[in-house]
Design a protein around this nucleic acid. Sequence first.
DNA 1: ATCTTTGCAAACATTTTGCAAAGCA
DNA 2: TGCTTTGCAAAATGTTTGCAAAGAT
Lengths: 142, 142
Amino acid sequence: MKSAAKQSKYETVLRDAGLRITEPRRVILEVLDKTEGHPDAAEIFERAVAINGRISLATVYRTMKALEESGAIERHAFAGGPARFEQAREGEHHDHLIDLDTGQVIEFANPTIEALQEEIAAKLGYEIVHHRLEIYGRKLKE
Amino acid sequence: MKSAAKQSKYETVLRDAGLRITEPRRVILEVLDKTEGHPDAAEIFERAVAINGRISLATVYRTMKALEESGAIERHAFAGGPARFEQAREGEHHDHLIDLDTGQVIEFANPTIEALQEEIAAKLGYEIVHHRLEIYGRKLKE
DNA sequence: ATCTTTGCAAACATTTTGCAAAGCA
DNA sequence: TGCTTTGCAAAATGTTTGCAAAGAT
């Protein structure tokens, strides 16, 4: 046999999302994968350009939208700033605590809160599509 | 005695906020007071102009910022849209359920969730400055 | 061959700002 | 009077879009 082309994990993500496999998209996914935290479009763009100078900011936005629609990434709109993105991790939903002084984003999960939300929504006659819980705070002096 | 000038409740709000009492601000507060729901800056501006045609959008934004800083109003940044405002009501914090089909905003309160958040923040070494919980959902068919 | 995706620049939407004139205390 | 606030227009953000060229299947 001739050999099956090696498929990077980024290609798999794109294929699963029903998107064509292109250089810009592969690079953007690589950036997303290798970036800690919750980068915004400008940060993703900057890193992508460092890998391949031909990528445009518009493509970053278009790719983020496509990946978001396919569920591969999540978009967060934290207060007072550009949208930030992160890779979707299946199952474990989590929320965010944003350090008001540093902008640092800390993730946390709490099943009880999740359950309470379901209850609240049901009581109001709604089914939850998604939700967000953000805590904005300051570090306690120890 | 000469008579104490009658003070509208809007003047009181402004005085408490340490702001000068001006026509534009009085009108904006009146709009906020008389508007149901969570208007955005453009809506507030539109209604304010109907009362006094000389008010500008910039003044709406500046007033909202000042009132927010003084705690008289709250600013919400729901996903994908302009900031929306509402009068602050003391004590009873509440959260929002946003109807994805109609944009309608439903308020709810849940003390248990509030308490859990305090716990989470404390465990992470933070004190909460504010938070937001938004549920985005669709009406269940009955 | 056909449909998708890209880069670029221009368009958009929301919010902020510089400045001189007007308003308030 | 002296500091604050306003309106206006311009600028600043963050994001989207039209279009012709390039790329993927």
